[in-house]
């Protein structure tokens, strides 16, 4: 990439601490509260957010600028911010307040948007396309809407040479090429890059960095705008998905068994007849 004139790119990466996906099988639901027992599995930076950090650091390396990392999370998320600093991010912001608890995607995006505005001017907000635990893929686009900037979601590669954002974005039926001015919000997919591991030397340097902590008052947000109170969606129930399977042996001749099977599949809505018949 060719350097562009001026100050380079000011990037803010939004990250989310999630339970280590490699240990998802050890996650349990509390039988009383029906909430995940997160303390039993260590938290890590959401894997796709690592792609977002890598993309921002790559922009900084090639085109200059600065990279800040931001999360809305409990105070112990300093660990993930420290890791982001060790990877090479310049600043870290932790938006933390008991009032933020229970936030849905909109309340989360509202809080992050307030944090981003307070952090100063930016050229690019980068997020993972979705989180490994929630998988809604909503926060990125909501952030763009709240910040009133374009959003480019599920980006697999970017070209910033023109000073604009030229991005390839994955869609269900192919790829679209989008061209956008800055500032903008970009959400990254896993194939966008190969995140590097933090160097141990970077960890030592990161320990000297200060994490800026802001609560709802610092962000100028009312209690009704954040956390559970600011969330239009409610989680009604959580349950563990059952992986149990039931086998059934159909009896009869081949024709009889075929007829029984077809009837059973029709009954369960797995095949239809008439127009658009499935074979």
């Amino acid at each position: 990439m060719l350097p562009i004139a001026g100050r380079g790119w000011r990037c803010i990466v939004c990250v989310k601490p999630v339970p280590d996906p490699s240990l998802f099988s050890k996650l349990r639901l509390d039988p009383e509260t029906m909430l995940l027992r997160r303390d039993e599995v260590p938290s890590v930076i959401n894997p796709l957010d690592r792609n977002a950090i890598e993309a921002a650091l790559d922009i900084k390396r090639r085109l200059g600028g600065r990279v800040a990392v931001m999360t809305m999370a409990p105070p112990n998320a300093q660990e993930q911010l420290l890791e982001a600093l060790a990877l090479g991010c310049d600043r870290a912001f932790l938006l933390t307040d008991k009032a933020f608890a229970g936030a849905d995607t909109l309340a989360t995006a509202r809080t992050l948007a307030a944090g981003i505005r307070k952090a100063g001017r930016f050229d690019l907000v980068l997020c993972g396309a979705w989180s490994a635990d929630g998988s809604t893929a909503q926060v990125g686009p909501q952030l763009a809407e709240l910040l009133n900037v374009p959003d480019l979601v599920c980006v697999t590669s970017m070209d910033l040479r023109s000073g604009r954002i030229l991005a390839q974005c994955r869609r269900e039926n192919g790829t679209v090429l989008l061209d956008s001015p800055r500032p903008a919000v970009v959400t990254l997919e896993a194939g966008a890059n190969a995140p590097k591991l933090p160097a141990m030397g970077g960890i030592g340097k990161a320990l000297k960095s200060k994490v800026t902590m802001w609560n709802s008052r610092d962000l100028g947000l009312k209690p009704s705008q954040v956390g559970l109170a600011g969330s239009p969606t409610r989680m009604l129930n959580v349950f563990a998905a059952s992986g149990a399977r039931k086998g059934e042996i159909l009896q009869g001749t081949t024709n009889e068994v075929t007829a029984q099977l077809l009837e059973r599949l029709r009954h369960d809505g797995l095949v239809t007849t008439g127009k658009g018949v499935s074979r």
């Binding site: 260590p42 300093q78 660990e79 591991l197 933090p198 141990m200 960890i203 990161a206 320990l207």
Partner: peptide, 10 residues
């Protein structure tokens, strides 16, 4: 400590 957790994960 956080730095040891990061070393372990890395």
């Amino acid at each position: 400590p956080n730095q040891v957790k990061i070393v372990q994960r890395t």
